[in-house]
Write a protein that binds this DNA or RNA. Structure first.
Ligand SMILES: [Mn+2]
Ligand SMILES: [Mn+2]
Ligand SMILES: [Zn+2]
Ligand SMILES: [Zn+2]
Lengths: 157, 157
DNA sequence: ACCCTACCTTAGACACTGTCTAAGTCAACA
DNA sequence: TGTTGACTTAGACAGTGTCTAAGGTAGGGT
């Protein structure tokens, strides 16, 4: 991920302070932030960044294949910088925690030709649902933050 | 599905005209309407039914297990009366058409214990994406109606 | 170093989806 | 038929995402 800016430069992206902080917030592979969470974190680094720019930048990163959109519920989409390693998601129904998981085999293989109805099938999203250990233990559901703890929590010097 | 009202009566539901028309709109197993589509169709039968009542009724049907919510994209949820036969969905990326599909085997089986991180996994949703035959043939993407054509299109006498 | 200008950013309005509330209505039962 | 608690309603409200018009700026050209 740290060479994201290099890849973007190679695609002749105009490098602005706003795009830099959005990329910085998305640094780390195991985060699944909403657009507003990204906006809040970006604004901590660059106070006047606007919501529209965050949405614009995220949309461009998705179009470039650097970030994938994840819709686990009917709520806000989450933006996943772990786009270069196909994976699926395991979601806690209680607190919303999201974990990256890697099912065995090709998830597309389970759909026989007779069940494709002439579609050209190009992808599949698998969302496992359940209770995380904390919630199963009766812990009060912590705020649904979207982080999964493995993201690079860069402590300012 | 036609005995839905009977099942609801058995659960001591108060049987109102509004609930009847919502159930009537959901009659047929292969529809995936949004709440607003259901509201529009219900209003054709009972003009003054309110949006709030449609949402209330759908929420109750979901809680009773008679209808399942389907979130295929970041847009409006779809309400699926085919709740008594587990299935997954195949979505056209261009026109939004949704088909019920039945993958081989248990979709939960693909997630090994080592990939469950202590979660109690209780369910899984699989959404296959691709292009339907019409869109692949270059047809102008028809309006994203949510119907899949197999629903009982009851022609009024 | 300075200009240009096409591209980027901004604030805020707007659209869509869903929830909530207070007041009125009515299905079911006695 | 009368009573009553459950149901329905209109509209306000909240969360999420898109769009526009006006202003700003990165980066190439000079
Ligand atoms: Mn992920
Ligand atoms: Mn279905
Ligand atoms: Zn949890
Ligand atoms: Zn299509």
């Amino acid at each position: 991920m740290s060479d994201l800016l290099a890849r973007l430069r190679a695609r002749s992206w105009r490098l602005t302070a706003q795009r830099r902080v959005v990329a910085q917030v998305l640094d780390g592979d195991h985060v699944h932030f909403t657009a507003d969470e990204i906006h809040a974190r970006a604004a901590a680094l660059l106070p006047e960044i606007s919501r529209a720019t965050v949405y614009n930048t995220l949309g461009e990163l998705v179009a470039l294949g650097e970030v994938v959109e994840v819709s686990t519920d009917g709520r806000a989409k989450r933006y996943d910088p772990n786009a270069h390693h196909a994976h699926q998601h395991l979601v806690c129904e209680s607190c919303g925690t999201i974990r990256d998981v890697h099912p065995l085999g090709d998830p597309l293989a389970g759909l026989p030709a007779a069940e494709r109805y002439g579609f050209t099938v190009s992808g599949v999203a698998v969302t496992y649902r359940g209770l995380c250990p904390d919630c199963a233990a009766g812990a009060a559901p912590p705020a649904r933050t979207g982080s999964t703890g493995t993201g690079s929590t860069r402590t300012e010097a």
